[in-house]
Design a protein around this nucleic acid. Structure first.
Length: 660
RNA sequence: GCCUGGGUAGCUCAGUCGGUAGAGCAACGCACUCGUAAUGCGUAGGUCGUGAGUUCGAUUCUCAUCCCAGGCUCCA
């Protein structure tokens, strides 16, 4: 038998028998690798382990512990899911089943429009385990589109995909399913299950041990609300039991941090159904934190050269006709109110009002840039199914600003905004950011192409000048202009989109805004929309999850709780409370009705930063026992020392926040 | 808006194959006066989300509606 030679990623070569597969290569390197291998990359393409290697091929083995490997694992598990469903629901039609972050899903159309119930999930998962135990091989075959159409004749969704990819104007959406064009590949597990798929797959179902089905939901075919709703099943799959458990644990951790749960547990706010969906009421504890956030925001803006304005919650519809909101966003606005002299709407944005502030008198080029700031309450009619605690809410407050500037000021203004945004976000404990530039949506925009190009360039230039790397989201812009979005990464690695900076050449035109230039002629200012927190409500929710309810001392609703050991120490406890309160420290005390241990536990569950225990020794020596959140108890601390240290902590955090 | 599941005491949940409900924690009372994450005993608390229908009788079955959860779609 002749030999071939293949090149490994480290540049070394390896001799193999002619006809050897990628799996043979993995085995020749080591049995451990062969066991962990799920696929291979040959000359840059991800392929099955069963792929026959050619001489001089550049080969790397993909193991299940890499991102690519897990992707293969998850995709293969999706196939097993589909097979289980066809066994349990004869006649089920299946559409697509991709791997996604941390897992996979598969969409089905059940006979008679049936739907999955929670019990079905258990049965399907058991069936999947049976298929895994059967150790079925994934066997690849390739065919022409017409052969594929024949093979999948009873699978209308598959046929539609085949027709789309082979059509002249075939879009890339389906390429991931079947590859592009002339050759359609399919994987057969056994006589009665074959699925169209570009692959690769693990060699056999026995490699798919560590998975769990998670939930079912409806999902529109091809993501279109006009299309048929299919039944989707989500699952997760991992390379090992430990990895699966770690993932499930992380989900639990995230659930524990859920801001809706913490908001109830910590008595911060609630969503009474008497008010209606998507509307929150702030309880005293939550309102304190919010007020501190807002005060901080106000003082930062004051120092940043912003001028404060107030505008009403309602406006005549003509205003939103001028701004274009009624043309592009009427569905997302609260329904109109007919009143004596016109049709009124709740405002969905503050910008039209700020345009009126600008336009209220003649402006000189010397005044620019004019930075108008408002904590503006806006109302948007979010569809019922999209509401989600504070994260998606119908009434909220934007830390909103509109900057009117000259064209020659634009780049500097955007650049300094980027600094400003990051500094404010850092003050709240975020230090990992990602940036995205969103460009014109060809379906939904106002203004000329030229204006859009100008605005997009301005944003791009600012990002480049800052040396920031950023993604581009084509077609994601607002209807009036392109934007930069800033995402933060939270304490458990999740990403949240918070801030936005939007360039707008359109509204100044629509509102006919002008300034008198140095040349004594009239000019059009440029407008920047920007919000740092975005929505105060949402930002609060993100913070709550980021800190898991344990706000840093400067933000904590109650900073100190004083606990007298027994009734004899209550007078002294009150004295301690007074001393601290005098320094504007948020402090309370709980008298000795319950056992000390119980009161400490209660304070810990409330996530109060400092618990002060005072007993005989403390009364005698004017000291306190300091029990800090997440730290060790420190007895006999002079009260004056504690006060000094907590004040230093608070002012340091605030000062750092102010100058970060 | 669409799909699935849910709404029982302040919170977390159990339960009723149709005969008006129970636990733990919290609250309140009494005893205990306690040095760093749950002292003991007792009391009170619910027209079982809301409205209608079926029924001798509905928290339970049916329908409508509101709200909540997870997705889909949407998010200026």
């Amino acid at each position: 038998m002749t030999a071939i030679s293949v090149v490994l990623p480290d540049g070394s070569t390896r001799e193999l028998d002619d006809g050897a597969t990628a799996f043979d290569l993995a085995s020749s390197i080591g049995s451990g690798l062969a066991k962990a291998a799920v696929a291979a990359v040959v000359d840059g393409s991800l392929v099955d382990l069963s792929t026959t290697l050619h001489d001089n091929a550049l080969v790397s083995i993909i193991t299940s512990t890499s991102d690519e490997g897990r992707h293969v694992l998850r995709h293969s598990t999706a196939h097993v899911l589909a097979q289980a469903v066809t066994r349990l629901f004869p006649g089920a039609k299946f559409s697509v089943g991709p791997a996604i972050e941390n897992g996979f899903y598969y969409d089905f159309d059940l006979p008679g429009g049936a739907t999955f119930s929670a019990d079905d999930l258990d049965a399907i998962e058991s069936e999947m385990r049976r298929i895994v135990d059967e150790d079925q091989p994934f066997i690849r075959s390739e065919m022409t589109p017409s052969e594929a159409l024949a093979l999948f004749a009873d699978q209308p969704y598959k046929c539609e995909i085949i027709q789309r990819v082979t059509a002249a104007d075939g879009d890339s959406l389906d390429a991931g399913e079947v590859g592009s064009g002339d050759v359609i590949s399919a994987y057969r597990n056994c006589d009665d299950f074959v699925d169209m798929c570009v692959g690769p797959h693990v060699p056999s179902t026995s490699r798919l041990q560590h998975f769990a089905l998670q939930r079912t939901s409806g999902a529109y075919w091809r993501g279109s609300e006009q299309a048929r709703m299919l039944q989707r099943i989500y699952g997760t799959a991992w390379e090992s039991k430990a990895a699966l458990q770690a993932h499930l644990q992380q989900l639990e951790e995230a659930a524990k941090r859920d801001h809706r749960r913490l908001a109830t547990e910590l008595d911060l706010l609630s969503f009474p159904s008497e008010i209606g969906g998507g509307l929150a009421i702030w309880h005293p504890r939550g309102a304190i934190v919010r007020r501190i956030m807002e005060d901080y925001s106000r003082s930062r803006h004051e120092r940043g050269g912003y001028q404060f304005v107030f505008t009403p919650h309602l406006a005549n519809g003509k205003l939103f006709a001028t701004s274009g909101h009624l043309d592009y966003y009427a569905d997302g606005m609260y329904p109109p109110m007919e009143m004596d002299n016109g049709t009124y709407y709740m405002k969905p944005m503050n910008c039209p009002m700020h345009c009126l502030v600008y336009g209220s008198r003649q402006r000189s080029y010397r005044e620019l840039p004019i930075r108008l700031f408002e904590l503006g309450n806006v109302y948007r009619y979010e569809r019922a199914g999209t509401l989600h605690g504070l994260m998606r809410i119908r009434g909220f407050t934007q830390d909103d600003s509109h900057i009117f500037c000259r064209e020659d000021q634009l780049a500097d203004e955007v650049a300094s905004l980027l600094d400003f945004v990051l500094s404010v976000l850092r003050a709240f404990g975020f230090d990992e950011f990602t940036f995205n530039l969103s460009t014109k949506d060809p379906e939904k925009y106002v203004g000329s192409d030229e204006i859009w190009e100008k605005a997009t360039d301005a944003l791009r230039t600012a990002l480049d000048r800052h040396g920031l790397t950023y993604g581009v989201k084509d077609g994601d812009a607002a209807f009036y202009g392109p934007k930069i979005d800033i995402d933060v990464r939270d304490a458990i690695g999740r990403s949240w989109q918070l801030s936005t900076i939007q360039a707008d050449f359109n509204n100044p035109e629509r509102f006919d805004l002008e300034y008198i230039g140095a040349d004594n002629a009239r000019h059009r200012p440029i407008m920047l929309h920007r919000a740092l927190f975005g929505s105060i409500e949402r930002f609060f929710g993100v913070l709550l999850e980021h800190y898991a309810g344990a706000f840093p001392t400067w933000l904590a609703p109650v900073q100190v709780r004083v606990l007298p050991v027994s009734a004899a120490h209550e007078t002294y406890a009150r004295h301690v409370v007074e001393m601290l309160a005098e320094k504007n420290i948020r402090v309370d005390s709980v008298d000795a009705g319950d056992a000390l241990g119980k009161r400490i536990r209660a304070a810990k569950l409330e996530k109060i930063p400092y618990v002060l225990v005072v007993g005989d020794d403390d009364v005698a020596a004017s000291t306190v026992g300091v029990n800090p959140r997440g730290g060790d108890v420190d007895r006999d601390v002079p009260l004056a020392d504690f006060m000094q240290s907590i004040l230093a902590e608070i002012t340091e955090a605030t000062a750092k926040a102010m100058t970060a």
